[in-house]
Design a protein around this nucleic acid. Sequence first.
DNA 1: GCCAACGTTGGC
DNA 2: GCCAACGTTGGC
Length: 137
Amino acid sequence: MNYWLIKSEPFVYSFSDLEKEGVTMWEGVRNYQARNNLRAMKKGDLTLFYHSREGLEVVGIARVVKEHYPDPTAEKGDWSVVEFAPVRRLSHPVTLKTIKSDPSLQEILLVRNGRISVMPLDQDAYERILTHSENPS
DNA sequence: GCCAACGTTGGC
DNA sequence: GCCAACGTTGGC
């Protein structure tokens, strides 16, 4: 079991949209590092769903339901998609501010490289973020 | 809306 | 293969 964090701009595609749709093809990733992370995802892996640009918080958990295959929306190049389904919404969102103020989360890529949209999380960081959602400050 | 940080492109 | 220029992302 691997853990991940994916970003989406909520005005483009929000966690609510995923809940409505039930399953989504995660299309449009055009960054090699992010693409390689998509390709490393296994069915059943869990990913935190983060709202970028607006909200700036982790709002829910999604699960990989289909492993990577070529991105049908890519006109050229070697790109991949996976499919996600919602698991649950967090009882309380965990803000970027909260994450940045937690000394044990300073090493995660969300903090260290703000520009990557699909990133791995180790289990400790994943659970730590969920702990924040259960015990909002 | 601005702009820093980062990734990518392309001239040499 | 270096690196300047450019485009994009995303926090503020």
